[in-house]
């Protein structure tokens, strides 16, 4: 069975992508899936050539034939998403493709057409194949795109007989995160010792519980507030979730990103510590 590892964080900016990048060099039979489609940054550190690029069709959207349209307004009043303006123009950003407008149109002026909502890239990196995607800004349905990235990653893993998939998930708790965590072998939640970090952690923990995902937590920059770090640990203790790693704040972490280097490949002392290798060992299992 494929070992699918997802790295998530309720709150953004906790260091999720830097840590995801840091574990990648330790795996040999790997497929990388960047499911943070709103902020796909993994390819900045894990450089790779695009092998294949294709459009992603998210769903169908209505197109109005204005020669047939009588401006009766029925589509506008029937739309529950306010996606049709009073002068009968489709507002793409709010349309969810339900096709009610097509159904109610008395003159058959509305037809549904495939809509491209993003792009999917298949890259070749020195660590193995990587699938990532980009949503056209403002498009919805990122959950669908995430599901597609994961499916392609699985396909590649089967084809090339690779046993590990590492998924960089998105922050938050909505459909894109749900798509990223369902059915994975392990989830790693990256948090930070702030009041917001703890608050968002609780929601993500709730989510992983709901979807029966096995999760462990990394407290990043734990020494920026030892008291909050302690509070986080107490909470996780109560929930029976293990803190598998605590990383100190180190300016070198930011510096390595600025120099486009994977943090764990620099000479930061943390990445040669026992805790770090123990953590990698856990991921491999």
């Amino acid at each position: 069975m494929i070992n699918e590892i997802v790295v998530i964080s309720g709150k953004g900016g906790t260091g999720k992508t830097s840590l995801t990048a840091s574990i990648i060099p330790y795996f040999e039979d790997l497929v990388i899936a960047d499911c943070d489609v709103d902020a796909p940054d993994l390819n900045i550190l894990i450089k790779g050539d695009i092998v294949q690029e294709r459009d992603f069709i998210g769903f169908q959207r209505p197109v109005i034939d204005y020669d047939k349209c009588t401006y009766c307004g029925l589509c506008q009043t029937s739309c529950n998403f306010n996606a049709i303006s009073e002068d009968i123009i489709i507002k793409n950003a709010t349309c969810e493709g339900c096709k009610v407008c097509e159904y109610v149109c008395p003159t058959d002026a509305i037809t549904m057409h495939d809509t491209i909502i993003g792009k999917i890239y298949h890259r070749k990196t020195i660590f193995g194949p990587m699938i990532d995607a980009r949503l056209i800004p403002g498009e919805e349905s990122s959950g669908k795109l995430v599901a597609e990235v994961r499916k392609l990653a699985r396909d590649v893993a089967y084809e090339e007989n690779r046993n590990t998939i590492i998924i960089d998930g998105s922050p938050g708790i909505a459909c894109n995160v749900i798509s990223a965590i369902t059915g994975v072998s392990k989830a790693i939640i990256v948090t930070e010792p702030t009041i917001s970090g703890l608050h968002d952690l609780k929601k993500v923990v709730h989510l992983v519980r709901m979807f029966s995902v096995k999760a462990k937590v990394i407290i990043n920059k734990y020494d920026l507030s030892l008291s909050k770090a302690k509070e986080i640990k107490e909470y996780l203790d109560l929930m029976g979730i293990e803190v598998i790693l605590e990383l100190p704040f180190d300016v070198e972490m930011v510096n390595s990103i600025n120099n486009l280097k994977i943090p764990s490949t620099t000479d930061m002392p943390f990445f040669s510590s026992d805790e770090w290798f123990k953590f990698i060992e856990y991921l491999r299992k």
Binding site: G12, D38, P137, G138, E139, G172, N176
Partner: peptide, 11 residues
Amino acid sequence: SPPGTSCSTVA
């Protein structure tokens, strides 16, 4: 606003 560029940011 929510971070990112998805539908909720647009809203």
